[in-house]
Every structure is written in structure tokens, then in C-alpha cells.
Design a protein around this nucleic acid. Structure first.
Lengths: 134, 134
DNA sequence: ATGAATGCAAAAACTTTGCATGACG
DNA sequence: CGTCATGCAAAGTTTTTGCATTCAT
């Protein structure tokens, strides 16, 4: 679906900052960007946008399900475009490289664990820290 | 091993704040405390300690492997005493309750995933966000 | 005694909010 | 045109740092 329609469908006006941020996340080499990353990138592209707007827009996008927010390591949150497919992350501790993966089995077990303890699984966060085999 | 020796072994002087914080984490009903939690608890116990010291001490304990820091969702880090046994966490998004669990199967699959992609699994972080079933 | 550890306050890093102006539909 | 969205600046949160004082060894 085309981006502008996704915005309208989410009840958000099609404004320049919102369109630019969507485009940026779509085209980004680094799929996982912090608010600051997005802000700087837009400023560098000559856009006139405020950091507060970036935060507001990303938060709205998250609420609308257009974007996923990850709270990786403490400091700052990173955002990536929601592509419909859920996936987890593997981070190489040497190179910083981020690899995405999905494993049906793990997902199922997670559900079972939650159920077994009387809970309903709402979300999860799995990050594997790895290094290249020599 | 007795606490004071653990401190000495880590190259840390045995000071009142450090001892109190270790004791607190050891005796805590809630095993997962934020720096603020620890600070308030100590103040309530009549200890004269600074929040900055709590942060410094917890960071040192983490570096020494005495404590594990978790970056759950919600902006602030929580700490728990390292008990040697690895476990993952389940956080109730309604009550904030934290449940620990271990699942051999998930651990094995994680290894397989890393291996399959040519990596060696060094560490991982798994948090399930759940809510109580009605 | 001497270097490390502490408390306090100030600063830093990240994110949210209030408000007047400007843009979308 | 009436909102809704924006930019800026100011305030909120969480965590870190500078510095003089105190404490452990």
C-alpha cells in the first residue's frame, strides 16, 4: 500500500514531516534508527523539522502500527518500519551488525510458557548477542 | 561466599553503602529493583546515602559481575543479584510483576539459530511482556 | 597518610509538553 | 475556515560527573 494512504488510514494528516520520516525509514540503509538519527538525517537533507516533531511522529507511528520501537540497550530507543512480519534480532558484538530472524518454534514455546503460568503473551523482545565463528 | 569477600575480590573497598546495597538486593522481596527503588529503600531504612552513589555502586557491581542490569521497557533499568543461574524474564504489563523462568528448549534453539547463520552465541536477552488472563 | 569512596549539586542525555504559528482537508 | 500539526523552548526523567569532604586500609 502506498504510504500516504497508510497515513490517512491511521487518521493522520499527510504532512511533510510524516511523509519524509516514512520515506526515510523505508529507504534507510540502517533499518534501526533512533529519533536523533532520523532528526539529523532530515536536517542533513535540508528539511526543516524539529526534534520534538520527530519524537511525536514516531510515537504516533508506533501507536498506528506503522513502526516498531525497540528498547535495546538502555540509552535510547530505536525505530524500524513495521513490515508485517515479526522478527527478532541478532547483534554481532564485534561488528555491530544486526541480523533479523524468525523462528516459529521459539514463538510457540514463548506462548506455552506464558500460558503455563497463567498469562497471555502480548509481546516479547529477544536479542541474541553473537560473534562470527573463526 | 560472604558478601564482604565478594567485594574485596572485586577490588572494591568494603564501605557502608556497598554493603547495604548488597544486603538489600539479597533480602529484597522484589528481586528486580531500579536505582531509585534501592535509594528510597535505603533512605527509608535511615541510611544516609546519595542517589549518585547508588548508581555508581550498581554500575560497579555490574562490572564485577555481582549484579545483572536489565533494560526492560519503561525507561529505567532494574538490577538483580547475580545468582549464577541464568534465567529469562516475563513482565506483566499491567502490574509490573516480574517472573523468572528458564526453558532449555529455547536456549537450545537459540544456539542452533546462531550456528546456522555462522555465528557463536555469546549471550542473549529474552523478555516476554504478558498480562494476566481473565 | 593516602588514595578511594561519598554526598551534594550541577550537568548530561533522552524524551515529553505548552503554546503560538502555520498547514491540511 | 476549523482543526490538527509543527517548531521552538522549557520542563521532565533517568543517569552521570565535578568537586570538596570523609572513610577504609
Amino acid at each position: 500500500m502506498e504510504k500516504n494512504n497508510e497515513l490517512r488510514k491511521a487518521g493522520l494528516k499527510v504532512t511533510l514531516p510524516r511523509v519524509k520520516i516514512l520515506q526515510l525509514l523505508d529507504a534507510a540503509d540502517n533499518k534501526h534508527m533512533s529519533a536523533e538519527d532520523v532528526y539529523k538525517s532530515l536536517i542533513d537533507s535540508g528539511e526543516d523539522v524539529g526534534l520534538a516533531t520527530v519524537y511525536r511522529v514516531l510515537t504516533q507511528f508506533e501507536a498506528a502500527g506503522l513502526v516498531v520501537r525497540h528498547n535495546f540497550d538502555g540509552g535510547h530507543a530505536v525505530f524500524e518500519l513495521a513490515d508485517g512480519d515479526h522478527h527478532d534480532h541478532m547483534v554481532c558484538i564485534d561488528s555491530g551488525e544486526v541480523i533479523e530472524f524468525v523462528d516459529k518454534e521459539i514463538e510457540q514455546i514463548q506462548h506455552k510458557i506464558a500460558e503455563r503460568l497463567g498469562f497471555e503473551l502480548v509481546d516479547h523482545n529477544l536479542v541474541l548477542y553473537v560473534k562470527k565463528k573463526k
